[in-house]
Design a protein around this nucleic acid. Structure first.
Length: 480
RNA sequence: CGGAGCGUAGCGCAGUGGAAGCGCGCUUGGUUUGGGACCAAGAGGUCGCCGGUUCAAAUCCGGCCGCUCCGACCA
């Protein structure tokens, strides 16, 4: 581990991100280009993400299952838009057991097709509906430009797949799960997000409508943090997912799919981190409180007393994820810096001086404030502080986003705003809805229509690009 | 996949044709410990890979691979 300071965010956000990911031991580069190793600390974070999401999926009636990694190429080809959208990024297996395969196998880029195949077999009657399935899996998309967590060729995610009797039920499900993502992002990851609908050109390949939650990162770029799709009857028709309704009439189902991936970890890093490194939201942090005992190792008396107190404090906080860093070969200062780099929300320092006063030092990672706290108050105070940190992270990220979201009067202003390498933030602007205007804006400014937010005034206006009447206000931004 | 930059010890780097180095980290011993401690002795390298030029290549030439950034494409 290098002793050097990390690159400041303001100097080079990308370099900062890469250094934080590796030095906080979240992930490493794999020998294969574009792939990554998720290290134990990063994986523990992912496991907490999984727990928080999985609980919500179960609470909304979904059941977990697992579908195969390999999908026959012909499955992908059954839905025209789907194959068109995904074919450039498919990994295809052509050989197995030393023989060329009769039909190439696709390594799943997503599982709509193979799950559709099974939905056809499992659904016969309206009584089988709704069918609510989720799977936790890895998927592969052949990416040309990769970044740890944000875009890797293989990534971990969950993909929900559901089938419904009516369009309305499918739409409700699609929005319900977007709501789950919003709730997760804001209340667990402390990431304020803008839920909304994707434009036609940004929607999922094969979907009727796509919804997204968009978040603003520390460099003011947008990150698509979760998506939910109403697939209409496209996949139901391609895979003949049909049911007999109450009047004994054969109907195609309406299906949905929705996903959140390890990319969210990148989002957490880029939303909260600072020049000292990572800052993890307490609810997801693998370690919520790190205790750094301080003593001279040759003073056995001090050492014993400090460690006894540490153990007692630990026992008094059974619901807090605690790590005790008693490495004697490292100075306290070194350990402070290390756990700050790794984003632990709360640090406790405890040494001989504290023992005399029956206190400890508590240091918050988010504000860097230090305070003396009587030991008998810890059981009450630590959970409160963790909640406060959780809340503060959300509030300050929200403030940052709102302060960097603008409404601009003219396209000239818009163009000027988007000029240059970096991003200056989000722009809320009217857009007529045409593919041409969207493409032009992208071409001329590098900004894309991130989403059409649900939360918007419905006053009509004029398209920022062509000036035509428009009802829809859109978030434009440069995105990851 | 196009443009640019970079590949030398775990990390950061120096080394422009003639003995592979520095700082940090690592190991051992000792002294230390409230914001990245100190002393001493050690370990650690096919200089990204392959080929070429040369008496001699980390260094020059060609090809390839990887990483980073910028574009085109995407969770």
């Amino acid at each position: 581990m290098s002793n050097e300071k990390i690159t400041p965010r303001s100097q080079d956000f990308s370099a900062w991100y890469n250094e934080v990911v590796q030095r906080a031991e979240l992930a490493d580069y794999a020998p294969v280009r574009g792939c990554m190793v998720i290290r134990p600390y990063g994986y523990a974070l992912w496991e907490n993400v999984q727990k928080a999401l999985d609980t919500r999926f179960k609470a909304t009636g979904h059941k977990n299952a697992y579908f195969p990694l390999f999908i026959p190429m012909s499955f992908l080809q059954k839905e025209a838009q789907h194959v068109e959208g995904f074919s450039p990024e498919l990994a295809v297996v052509t050989h197995g057991g030393g023989e060329e395969l009769a039909e190439p196998l696709v390594v799943r880029p997503t599982s709509e097709t193979v799950i559709g195949y099974f939905f056809k077999q499992w659904i016969h009657s309206y009584r089988d509906l709704p069918l609510l399935i989720n799977q936790w899996a890895n998927v592969v998309r052949w990416e040309l430009r990769t970044r740890l967590f944000l875009r890797t060729m293989e990534f971990l995610w969950q993909e929900g797949h559901t089938a419904h009797a009516t369009e309305q039920e499918a739409e409700e499900e699609t929005l319900r799960m977007l709501g789950v993502y919003t709730d997760f992002a804001e209340n667990e990851a402390a990431m304020p997000v803008i839920p909304g609908r994707k434009s036609e050109s940004e929607k999922f390949a094969g979907a009727l409508r796509s919804y997204t939650i968009e978040a603003m990162m520390g460099d003011k770029r947008a990150l698509q943090s979760g998506t939910s799709h109403n697939l209409g009857q496209n996949f139901a028709k391609a895979f003949e997912i049909q049911y007999l309704d109450k009047r004994n009439k054969l109907q195609h189902c309406w299906t949905t799919s929705w996903g959140m991936s390890t990319r969210i970890i990148g989002g957490i890093i880029m939303t909260h981190g600072d020049d000292h490194g990572l800052i993890l939201p307490p609810r997801l942090a693998p370690v919520q409180l790190v205790i750094v005992p301080i003593y001279k190792s040759d003073n056995v008396d001090d050492k014993t007393k400090v460690m006894e107190t540490v153990e007692r404090i630990k026992r008094g906080l059974p619901n807090v994820r605690i790590e005790v860093d008693a490495r004697e070969e490292l100075s306290p200062g070194w350990r402070f810096n290390e756990w700050e780099l790794r984003g632990v929300p709360l640090r406790m320092e405890i040494g001989p001086k504290d023992l005399q006063k029956n206190q400890v030092v508590l240091a918050r990672r988010d504000t860097k404030e230090k305070a003396f706290v009587p030991q008998e108050q810890l059981a009450q105070k630590v959970p409160v502080l963790l909640d406060e940190i959780q809340k503060n992270l959300f509030e300050r990220a929200k403030k940052f986003r709102d302060e960097n979201t603008f409404e601009l009067g003219s396209y000239d202003e818009f163009k000027k705003f988007m000029e240059g390498e970096g991003s200056k933030g989000f722009v809320r602007a009217y857009w007529c809805g045409s593919r041409e205007c969207e493409a032009k804006i992208k071409e001329e400014t590098k900004a894309t229509a991130r989403c059409i937010p649900f939360d918007r005034d419905n006053k009509p206006g004029k398209c920022i690009h062509c000036g035509k009447d428009s009802k829809e206000k859109v978030i434009f931004a440069k995105a990851y």
